[in-house]
Amino acid sequence: MSQVIVITSGKGGVGKTTTSANVGTALALSGRQVVLVDADIGLRNLDVVMGLENRIVYDLVDVVEGRCRLRQALIKDKRFDGLFLLPAAQTRDKSAVSPEQMKKLTDSLKEEFDYVILDCPAGIEQGFKNAIAGADRALVVTTPEVSAVRDADRIIGLLESHGISNTQLIINRVRMNMVKRGDMMAMEDVVEILAIDLIGVVPDDENIVVSTNKGEPAAAEANSLAGKAFRNIAERVEGKEIPFLDLQADSNFVGRLKKVFGFGH
């Protein structure tokens, strides 16, 4: 049963595109047929993050306006079996497509793929409405900041009013040491406010910046903690029960020793 999943947040810069790229990659790694759709028309990024920018010939707007067939616009990621990208147009804006057209597009993608992952633009305007038009479920990305949580709350309300109730939460860029000091909202606080199911917590990881710039999804890197978190999210998307990562794991030797002897928390 294939699914259309929209990845959204309301606020910009919390990691929607990174999450889309990594969750999509992780799903493809576990053998699924996945297409990543960049719904951020005019401000496309997903192709850059995936390192596929130089292979774009046709884009989403070309498909919608009938200048090419859907197949022609899909870019196959040669590194990962079963992973495709449908890029957004860069020279147009959000008004170039309508929610009805997006619904039609996702419906036809659904026939060929197990997962259609939509990278939603920031905001609640036309771009958002386009992105959620054909979605079966949503992953709401937030960071543990008051402003991001506030926007996520608004987005969850809007998703509900559009009839998307299968909504789960990803908390991105968690810095455990700051949480411990009480300088950052704890995961529990975020979940308490938003009152939806948590599907993943991604630690703040410098390597993400590096891999994003290189166009190589971190989910494919075996020893990246954030990559591991994204792979876990992908498994939970598939309905598997995976315990949450222990982000409190101290990386130094003394910390690990303390833990072994029960002095940890």
């Binding site: 008051v146 709350d153 309300g157 406010i193 009152a195």
Partner: peptide
């Protein structure tokens, strides 16, 4: 939730939180 406005001329009873 945020951005949601519940208005009524009589009394309002919310069975849940009122978020920021």
């Amino acid at each position: 939730r945020s951005g949601h406005h519940v208005d009524y001329q009589g009394n309002v009873i919310v069975l849940g939180d009122v978020n920021p």
